[in-house]
Design a binder for these strands. Structure first.
Lengths: 101, 101
DNA sequence: ATAACATGTTATATTTATATAACATGTCAA
DNA sequence: TTGACATGTTATATAAATATAACATGTTAT
């Protein structure tokens, strides 16, 4: 269910792309300028992975392709997946506190 | 910084292992019984990735190896990484509400 | 002591992800 | 309309993740 999103977030380059898009949408060549170490094809492949995970929404405008961040899948993981783990961490810390007192 | 954790969470099998460990610690053979489709070596490799990301803490007891969940790295991602994205999602929704009213 | 058990180690096959190269299409602006 | 630009497509090389196999060590219970 969250698999595509987790996989998309696994690569540091893709998280960096999301960081850039959080500030404002960007065209693909904007992104290529931001990541001069990467080939344009590499950037596009990463964008495809992000778009497949619905983390990036693409809007074509003339000859430009505007890439927009969609943070909802991340919020969804936050709401439905992380909760129980955060609770587990809190529980362990509580037990530790209790043991120390 | 969070890279090892994100990478560790990327594989569905590893997330399933964490789900099991959230209920209670388990020995490696417990886990192998829970995942009969996987070879024991595969389970151990996944545990190594999880342990390297500090998501699993290993405690040796005699001939058994007890694997404990450590949810703190997940809580850390929650606290320091997800926040800005959740804010972005909320902001977009607010703008949408405003546009509709 | 010894057989069954639980785990550890090393090597390797298979699959998947990452990064480029080469070429193609569509768009804008002078 | 034509040259520069932005993007798309297909193929391929390289690196990394995933899954097993074969063998080894240490531990427990009888």
């Amino acid at each position: 269910m969250f698999d595509a999103v987790f996989k998309a977030l696994a690569a540091p380059t893709r998280r960096q792309i999301l960081d850039v898009l959080r500030d404002h949408p960007a065209t693909t060549s904007d992104l290529c300028n931001r990541f001069p170490a990467l080939d344009r094809c590499t950037v596009m492949q990463h964008l495809k992975v992000l778009a497949d995970a619905d983390l990036v929404i693409v809007q074509r405008k003339g000859r430009e392709r505007w890439n927009h961040l969609n943070a909802l899948p991340i919020k969804r993981i936050h709401d439905r997946w992380i909760g129980p783990y955060a609770a587990h961490a809190a529980e362990v810390i509580d037990k530790l506190d209790l043991a120390l007192s």
